[in-house]
Amino acid sequence: MIGKSRRIGPIEKSQQVLLFLSPWLLTFAVFWLYPLLFSLILSFCDYDVFHPAMFSFAGFKNYWRLLGDGDFMQSFANTLIFVVGTTPVTTLLALALALMVNNVSRGSGIFRSIFFLPSIISIVVTATIFKSMYSPIGALNRFLAIFGLPGQAWLIEKNLAMPAIMLMNIWAYTGYYMILYLAALKAVPRQLYEAAEVDGADEWQQFRYITLPQIHYMTIFILVVNTIRSWQVFPEVFTLTRGGPVGSTNTMVHHLYETAFRYHEMGYASAISYVLLAIIMAFSLLQMYVLQGRGRDGGSRR
């Protein structure tokens, strides 16, 4: 993956190299490395950006506090529920849509566009529309009324708010992963199916023994990428519920946001952000491992 430069550049070009690299080096140092380290230091301190004079060292206090903080634990549990509740559904639905769009003989292009569109629109727009549809007199309750089902206060009821956000999230992002699955399906060699047909394999057998193994890496890739994205769920919570009712939709990033920018406990918030970093890094390393595995097998998507 790295270091296959074909031509070794002349060494006297060193100031050229520095000139070319400098924008990145500067951005990297100022807007990435420094914030990352400063955040780590802050997690061992008490600090407020807007009152920098009240800075004090706190040792491991912030990290100990996490363990006994019911709100943080709730936000962790909520995020876990969100990830476990959405990621498999989104992935399965994306695969189903991709298979259907791939096999339908008429209108596959337009179906693909319709399913894909929500994923490139700002999630805030989506949340705004759903906020209206979820309202007590909104479209969802009117739809349920057709079947004689009682309406619900979707975003106000403690047990319904999180599922409502999850449903919206699934609606919004499935099309993106469908596009990835479509690319993977296109890359499966046609000869495999032809050979299987000669051998008398039925369609289920073809799916089970050819399609699934052939798109295996894409499935793992989608699961990991989707998990990483879902751990960071925030704008939809901010737009729809602000973490309520009674903390039932308070996710980790939302809790981090509130701790830092509403309660101005930026040291403690930094400790939360490092817990998030640990979780995301673990999944990112898994992602790299998966991608390198794909590289070894030479199974390219294109």
């Binding site: 807007f31 420094y34 914030p35 990352l36 830092a260 930094s270 998030l276 995301i280």
Partner: peptide
Amino acid sequence: FWMVLITLMVPKQTLMIPLLDL
């Protein structure tokens, strides 16, 4: 170049407080 790749793995939320401070 490894550093370039590592920047992709770190969640942006970890950088937000120092970035605001900066």
